[in-house]
Design a binder for these strands. Sequence first.
DNA 1: CGGCAACTTGAAGGAAATCAACGTTAGTGG
DNA 2: CCACTAACGTTGATTTCCTTCAAGTTGCCG
Lengths: 237, 237
Amino acid sequence: MLAMTATLDPHVDPQRNVFPLPVKARGVGDDIVIDQFSQSMPSVYAPREDLFLEGDDASHLLEVTDGVVCAYRLLPDGHRHVVSFYFPGDLIGYCCAGTHTFSAQALNKVRVRRIPRPLINHLIETRPSFARRLLKLASDELAMTREHMLCLAAKSAEARMAVFLLALSRRNRETGGDPNRVELPMTRVDIGDYLGLTIETVSRTFSKLKRGGIIALPRTTTVLIKDPEELHYLAQG
Amino acid sequence: MLAMTATLDPHVDPQRNVFPLPVKARGVGDDIVIDQFSQSMPSVYAPREDLFLEGDDASHLLEVTDGVVCAYRLLPDGHRHVVSFYFPGDLIGYCCAGTHTFSAQALNKVRVRRIPRPLINHLIETRPSFARRLLKLASDELAMTREHMLCLAAKSAEARMAVFLLALSRRNRETGGDPNRVELPMTRVDIGDYLGLTIETVSRTFSKLKRGGIIALPRTTTVLIKDPEELHYLAQG
DNA sequence: CGGCAACTTGAAGGAAATCAACGTTAGTGG
DNA sequence: CCACTAACGTTGATTTCCTTCAAGTTGCCG
């Protein structure tokens, strides 16, 4: 259950030059108001099913409870750009205008709670603390987006991959998992479209890191971080 | 004077795949409250003077009234990344936590109005409409940052430059200026650090556009757009 | 076992970075 | 007003990294 006392994730640290992946607030809900409502309409999506498309009416705010969501945009030239990945506990679409600015697709079996926008608006009107929390959420997401932007603007393929893996590792640590064992729910294409690289470069970089003894890849979807120290070094550029 | 009725800039259109430059709200102020306060402490900065540094306490929100501000970050490896440019009417630091997540430098003579954060917090508490407006502002900036990110992830040097010039052109049009005459208050280094390119590439791309008859450069700081059609085409990728 | 999609690896090509030199502009002091 | 200087900008030659194109390989699911 969402607790009123749940605060925003204290680990978001815009000062560090890594970790652009969203690590958002758990428990943005205000008391049991949201809880009651959202319980009444849970939704489940199959792998590669779209939750919504860019331009769709953003009538609801989504909270991911299970699975991983890939936010993406399709360009006129046919290219695809992955904006972000959303994990359990993350909120989607909380600070958007009337329509969604990106599409969202389930990477595996995804479960979300749908929170109607009017409820959000009502809470903003009636509870200043809620508005402040949403604002903080938006500013955190902005900081993370800038981090990712910086990564794309200034870093090599190897550095981008290192940043990416460390972001996943960090998320694991924060959710009580093994920081040195990273599961990849997304394909190489997803990773490439997120990091601004081709699948070939993603694959080659994985191999290079493997050869260097920095990671191991027992399966294509499992990364074992063997040398976190070195990975951090590479992430710096 | 800031008017209560002033709404958010209707021209921000996240659907379009161009124009990542901030075109933010004029008149975020709530009635005359902010107006009264901010009038009392205007600040002026000389070219290349820093308004604040990354990590500084964000005690105030800044509204640019004159000149152009360059938001940037310095990386451990010595690289510099330009996050954004802020023009008259733009707000800086409205959605940031306790400390600034980037440094800000005046590109030319800059005048800003400093709005104390406690006042902002007070307005959020007491006026839901103000909170909603700030949230809208944050969501617009997020959309624009994503637009820029997409540009860095997926576009060629030429396309990035085209997008950049069109963004400046658009801003001109919206402020009643000549959309086909763009003044560049920033250096080639600034542009390069913003677009993730070297100064040489920026310069070469200017020359290429000039050779193609798409732009003219009567002075290094003045761009005349001769073929907006073609420039739009190039901006697509 | 077959078939297909995802992934890996190799070779060739290209776009931008780097290295290096030259030109241009603005600002300073004689 | 001109000479000098330093910062900024342009252009060329070379190198590097990533993309593209083209096979293979792996692994999953019927």
